[in-house]
Amino acid sequence: MSMHEITIKVNGKPRRLAVKSNELLLNVLRDKLFMTGAKYGCGIAECGACTILKDGKSVMSCLVPAVAADGWDITTPEGLADGGTLSHVQQAFIDHAAIQCGFCTPGMVVASTALLNENPDPDEEYVRDYLRGNYCRCTGYVAMVSAVLDAAQRMKAE
């Protein structure tokens, strides 16, 4: 299978890569760039564990061929914090005990970040609806919805 050279900006840094045309962005991130924050959960964009940001909007990386991501500016779960300082969403997830096994957490935090990028002042219904595409078997979601609403308040207060 033919190889393609692509350039992706990952968490602010340009990365040049040679990828096959059937390689998925999720696998390239995990196996070639060793950024394992985005997770495999279903492979069919049903669970959201692989969610990343493209230009601040959420994308399920398990369905994107890596060649199609040429030129993209993406943020993975590893790129949300500013060094040791967590983003408001990340900190709120910890403060609201919205984490259990933690396997959905990176994708959930990324999706919540995208949500607040789109709507900095969401109500509860908006958050519930937005997060329905991210699957969590542990928490029952309620603490996550609280965390996102609180993160919105924290961002406003800033």
Partner: peptide, 22 residues
């Protein structure tokens, strides 16, 4: 209530699970 000590690793995607072993 105390903040969970693995929280930082989990929200930053740096917690290493079995499927992350390379």
């Amino acid at each position: 209530n105390t903040p969970r000590s693995d929280g930082f690793a989990k929200v930053t995607g740096t917690m290493q699970y079995t499927s992350d072993i390379i």
